[in-house]
Amino acid sequence: MKIGLFIPCFMNELYPKASMATLKVLENLGIDVEYPMYQTCCGQAQANTGCSNETKVLAERFLKIFKNYDYIVAPSGSCVSMVRHNYAQFLQGRDGFEHMRTHTYELVEFLHDIIKPKSMNATFAHKVGIHNSCHAHRELGMASMSEKNVPEFSKIKNILDKVDGISYSELTRKDECCGFGGTFAITEEALSLAMGRARLQDHLNAGSEYITGVDMSCLMHMQGIIDREKMPLKTIYIAQILAGDTP
């Protein structure tokens, strides 16, 4: 089984540790991972701004680079959702697309659905607040959504449960958007901030020591507010917990 690792563009430049942790988690489980060097970006920012011509260019690059892997794994729910839900407009019918579309997984989702590890060999003795990032949550269906009448589950929690010492905070709004939203963070800056502050206040009230999640972009946004407002909170990308990296 050959796995192609996709690292979101901004993570490559800004979050090498979180990215390395992703690689480490997979390699620790004995998975054969390859990072194709010429990858850049899935085109999500372009797509979410409506720039379809530009998105198409990047979707085609993505297909060329990743179509021959058995699975493609990315440390990002929103990039995976991009491939799974929004690439069809540009790539429908193209050779290898359907395979790629159905075999691109978010890291935790991949562990949960495909690898099914018994333990993670990691310890994290902290109270953690899970941030259910919207695209992973509602488009990939990684946990039961508060709007729906369905049995409760969380793939994220199921995987984190395999980490020793971890405990969770209980939020009052367990899956509300943090206000990152890609270019939304800039276009609707005031609301983006307001939404971010509201999420963080919920975590503060719930006693979260760390906020974790499967989308570094949401965490970057929230950490930006935490740092500016000097809140007693930290964010940590989920792979860093799973890899046993001490913060």
């Binding site: 979410n48 695209h135 206000g179 270019t183």
Partner: peptide, 30 residues
């Protein structure tokens, strides 16, 4: 169409299952 973080909660609560967030995503292309 940009007054939206594409969180998709609207599509989940809609009693007639209108694909609201997907529409807002596509409207941006228009």
């Amino acid at each position: 169409p940009f007054a939206c973080s594409l969180c998709a909660s609207c599509s989940n609560v809609c009693p007639v299952q209108v694909d609201l967030h997907q529409q807002l995503y596509l409207r941006r292309q228009d």
